[in-house]
Design a protein around this nucleic acid. Structure first.
Lengths: 121, 121
DNA sequence: CTTTCATATGATTCTTTATTCATATATTAT
DNA sequence: ATAATATATGAATAAAGAATCATATGAAAG
């Protein structure tokens, strides 16, 4: 029995050496998971333009205040946004410019449709 | 009743103008959703290093062949990977270098812990 | 053409997660 | 202290998604 055209052992060793730790991969997936929701994506895009209070975001997205607050918490726990109080209202803002660049990269992938494939889900 | 320190109408108008279409936001979230899973993240990292067949990926990740095939389908439907047949085996490879840069950005956010916050989920 | 090897896929199960509802907390004004 | 406003949160519900199991397809060897 001859060696297959595609040498398994070689490939596997090459790959294993470049693979990050499990925990890091998990953290990375958890980070992207946060961008993987339309509501949160809208909130982030909103905060690209201005600092906003909960009521404003609620109005912008046309959702319940509770839903927004829950998602704001998710985003804050992930350190993607932060907030400060101003009287009775809570002002939320982007915590980090990584957010812009991460979303920017995704945006490029979506828009630069070199393949012109119409999202065939 | 005076204007609040935080002018709502102004902010809302600024934001609305910069907000992409709903469908685009949805596509963007859908893209990130795909990166938001440890198994898929591992598959992508594997393919960073080499083209691999299903059996190899299965061995690398220590999961069932079925689970891997299902996730490969998800990745392929999103045009993040592609494949070609080689005899009986299917070789998978990255479809696009955007994948590297998107993951790269996320990686930076995770590793550059300027905040030194230990993932307090 | 039957068997074997490699991969794909449909259906089901189990888990995760987004939203809602009701209620709690916090700040300011009366 | 009470009321009003702004936001947060716990519990429940519903929907999405990942892994499993059994089975199907597809290529090649005998």
């Amino acid at each position: 029995m001859e060696r297959p055209a595609h040498d398994h052992l070689d490939a596997l060793n090459t790959v294993r050496s470049g693979m990050p730790q499990d925990e890091l991969l998990c953290d990375l997936a958890d980070l992207f998971k946060i961008f993987g929701d339309t509501t949160r994506m809208k909130i982030l895009f909103s905060l690209f333009e201005a600092e906003l209070c909960v009521h404003e975001i609620t109005a912008l997205l046309g959702m319940t205040q509770s839903a927004i607050s829950h998602q704001l918490k998710v985003l804050k726990d992930a350190h993607l946004i932060d907030n400060h109080r101003e009287g009775k209202t809570m002002i939320y803002f982007l915590a980090d410019d990584h957010v812009r660049s991460i979303i920017g990269q995704g945006f490029e992938h979506i828009t630069e449709e070199e393949h012109s494939h119409e999202k065939d889900l």
